[in-house]
Write a protein that binds this DNA or RNA. Structure first.
Lengths: 209, 209
DNA sequence: CGTTTGATGTGAAATTTTTCACATAAATGG
DNA sequence: CCATTTATGTGAAAAATTTCACATCAAACG
């Protein structure tokens, strides 16, 4: 069964494949991908088997084929449009994040309640939050990122859902509810750091993830 | 056994508790925390049992006690110092992230190879990367965040380890190896978005996480 | 061409994680 | 002060995930 960690791994395999291709590699073995994604070779093959990805019984996998197949699964075969709500530190960093340029992820607009932060003429326009619903409808946006303070997050989520957004990444430090037929992934920076702090303190005697 | 997801949940419980306390709540039930962290009530109690946290057989848990206990586990009883290497979009956002101010997480310095980005006089100084080793040693830094391009990440990791850093959050889009007795958590924004894209497309027929 | 070699693919076993079922204790109320 | 109610705490069962073991196939080589 395809679960979250499985897709995370697939994404890692793909990243590794792109790096290997840049180094002119043509074939790759499950062992190599396992190293790159910090898992076991069997895990790689099990994951592939789950998606019906096949290799050559002795020759491993062809990198080009693998990239094509993982890309299709991960939706990299077309541009995926995102909006960002909340143009604070994180929001602005996402608008300018160079990592998205080479991927098929495109942030098409930002939104904020503060008129001082708006700028309709910018390369990626920053618009008043009230206009979000119309913008999403007119431009067929499917995905959104929430980077507002926790007190506003639930309200923003609801407005996004009303507007028709299907998948959301939430940076606000509050665990938002995932409604039926929608995807909400909560990513809390403080939580991530707390995790590191905990395991760095107890790393010696405890296992992890 | 305490694993990564377990600590993530603990962190979420604590966030919820702080919000509840701000609303003048004094007691809380496992059911409430379960709602806040999007898990089941049994899971909350199992987690607590794992850490030896006890409630009152009928009266639930006292919020103040719970906050104290979870805080101690998560290392919130003292300031945890971090450095950030790579002052690009993400790095700068982290330096200014207001969410850390109210927590016990303190980013004490940034580092970059580009002299134009350095500023020793800033509130949080940005120093040349060569000075990182000495800074870490002199200031007893335990934690670091990597927000450099993928090609530099492995090198930065190794320098951090040499300097004595024990826990690292890596934003570079490459899966870094976690050495013995150290914690390296890889957080790739594109991967997170790919996850959302996948499950939003197939959400109807597939389960998640 | 037959044999050996080496990597994939996958049922079965082992392990991990979550859920269930219920014993237990504290508060409430007659 | 006994019965009832209600939430915790936890062994046992169930479910999910990972690892193992090995059959299978294709290439390489004699």
């Amino acid at each position: 069964m395809v679960n979250r960690s499985c897709i995370i791994r697939l994404s890692r395999y793909r990243n590794a494949l792109i790096r290997l291709k840049a180094l002119n590699f043509v074939k790759v073995f499950s062992e190599n991908l396992a190293d790159a994604a910090r898992v076991t070779a069997v895990q790689v093959r099990k994951d592939f088997s789950l998606f019906g990805i096949c290799g050559n019984r002795r020759g491993g996998y062809l990198i080009d084929e693998l990239i094509a197949q993982t890309s299709a699964i991960l939706g990299k075969d077309k541009v995926q449009k995102f909006i960002v709500v909340g143009i604070g530190n994180i929001g602005r960093a996402l608008l300018n994040y160079p990592g998205f340029r080479r991927s098929e992820i495109e942030i098409v607009a930002g939104f904020d309640v503060n008129p001082a932060k708006c700028d309709k003429e910018a390369l990626i326009p920053i618009l008043p939050f009230e206009e979000m619903g119309d913008f999403v409808a007119q431009n067929g946006i499917t995905f959104g990122i929430i980077s507002v303070p926790d007190s506003a997050a639930q309200e923003v989520l609801e407005r996004m859902l009303e507007a028709g957004i299907k998948g959301i990444l939430n940076f606000a430090p509050i665990c938002l509810k995932e409604p039926k037929d929608h995807v909400v992934r909560n990513l809390n920076l403080e939580t991530e750091l707390e995790n590191i702090i905990y395991f760095a303190n107890f790393a010696e005697q405890t296992e992890r993830e």
